[in-house]
Design a protein around this nucleic acid. Sequence first.
DNA 1: ATGAAAGCGCTAACAG
DNA 2: CTGTTAGCGCTTTCAT
Lengths: 341, 341
Amino acid sequence: MVTIKDVAKVANVSISTVSRVLNNSGYTSTGTKEKVTQAVEDLKFQKNMVATAMIKKQTSTLGLIIPDIRNIFYGELTRAIEDQANQFGFNVILCNTDNDLDKEADYINFLLRKGVDGIIFSTPEMNDRNIKEIIKTRSDFPFIILGSKVTDVQLDEVLVDNFEGSYQATNHLLELGHKKIGFIGGQHNSYSTMERLKGYESALKDSGLESYENHIRLDEFKIPSGYNKGKELLSLSDRPTAIFAANDAIAVGVYKAARELNILIPEELSVIGFDDSQFAEIVFPPLTTIRTPITEMAEKTVELAIQTSGKGKNFKETITFQPSLIERESTSQVAEQKDPS
Amino acid sequence: MVTIKDVAKVANVSISTVSRVLNNSGYTSTGTKEKVTQAVEDLKFQKNMVATAMIKKQTSTLGLIIPDIRNIFYGELTRAIEDQANQFGFNVILCNTDNDLDKEADYINFLLRKGVDGIIFSTPEMNDRNIKEIIKTRSDFPFIILGSKVTDVQLDEVLVDNFEGSYQATNHLLELGHKKIGFIGGQHNSYSTMERLKGYESALKDSGLESYENHIRLDEFKIPSGYNKGKELLSLSDRPTAIFAANDAIAVGVYKAARELNILIPEELSVIGFDDSQFAEIVFPPLTTIRTPITEMAEKTVELAIQTSGKGKNFKETITFQPSLIERESTSQVAEQKDPS
DNA sequence: ATGAAAGCGCTAACAG
DNA sequence: CTGTTAGCGCTTTCAT
């Protein structure tokens, strides 16, 4: 390994001089600067970042904690985060927890010991005990939460307006004449599920409808959940004419359920998703959904993390992005309902 | 930050003693061991890994370089890698290059300067100049390539038998009576595309058929490529009755093309993919495909990286996994061809 | 069994 | 403008 020392020797200067030209700090005469630069090139010297990290107490690394990168939503999110981090000269360490809090605790610990400059959480759990705990002892450290909230905790948060998006989705269905609208959400302890459920119920109420318990299902933000719960809903004697899936993956599951039951989308069943992930355009018919501005959110998140780590910002902020309705072909005017008999 | 020094003070021992009990190295009396352990707990001491990294020259971190994590295949691969790395107490830094060699060069450099213990490449480019270059100066370093090969370079490689998988896929179609079989592959400079093309051509030849240039298209391993090339192939007057898509994403694109052209799968067109990714079960009809044992491959890759970094293995190996045919519903007996007139 | 001391590769005062 | 020196937090001889 070629070190600053070798460079110093070759350039015939002291190591501090080498350090100075390397960092462009302090004064250096053009002459020595050239000598050093030359030596650096000759030796193909590369500054060892772990040594620097030790002194400066910054590693140019961010931790990203998510449930599972295989989930397409997190794939998109992670990509956006990594891009932005890279823009700032940062790397990201990826951690998949499967929503396992013990696993998460281990990751947090490990990341902290490795001296990452910030940790971004994009985990759904509203009562994440790890976050609640760590925030107590490290309130100064850049922990940012993206796409969710943890109750009773002061934290930088970057969110999409779940309630609003959900309200829009439900309203879209309502405007198409649907009265029996099912809802399939993620985990009951997930912030976004709960907000989306509220938006749904609120839209229903505002249009004079009551939300019907039996048309509401919560499970996971995954395809099989959409399939199972979709099947349940669609097997009901008073089955909904429309389903609001709290994310696109659930919607995909609903598609599968509908197909098996020979229910046509959108003729006999309107489906709307949430996220506007890759799925939305793959499926047939293309999925109407609520777009989450994930790239913008990720960018803001990284900025927040890096800025906080640099300056030691002493306040927490919540940034909320607005979602938007993307109409495709999975929703349509409600059909005349034939009486089930 | 609480350091080993603080612990030493509280436990009333020297820092070297603390270090010893922390690492369970050398001799320590049970008494002092307890004192130290107690102090560690009291102070909630956590060993700073960057200091250790500086001395030991290992960071417990692996770099992973891929084109794009949004690509579902890489999502699955990355998850498997991360899991396995975590098993060994390693983290992984994720790098998306979009197949941009300059971007890749920057990442490699950065990772090396950060002292990662190994770099895993899962990039398709057969003539990757960065890998060719870096291997020259750092032939000792654990560079592992997963799912591809770089020509004229000695490197640890973990592969799936592309030729065999492709041969199987084509043969499956042949056995169903298809004679006009299209092929849509990824980039022409991609190792797996080329191997898969060879397997396809070989199967054709072995069954006495000639491969027909006009039924072969190369583009990218992405949905839009499958869509565009699929549309081209399906618009031909002597259009194929079956298409072998060199990965599942391409197959999804073909589905879309077929739907727009009102061509039924599998009645009028058989489609087979490669990878057995999540897509395969989402689409309708479920996609027949070739399964790549990605988890096993990822595990082996990580093992190789970590072992090499530890021991300084002085030979390179190539490990090839066998793929298998997963029959679902997108392939069927060839239909009687109505003469186009 | 334990402590003192040197040092990993670099940065950052502080002299000169 | 440049060199000397003292660390960053930890590991590791080497004495004792």
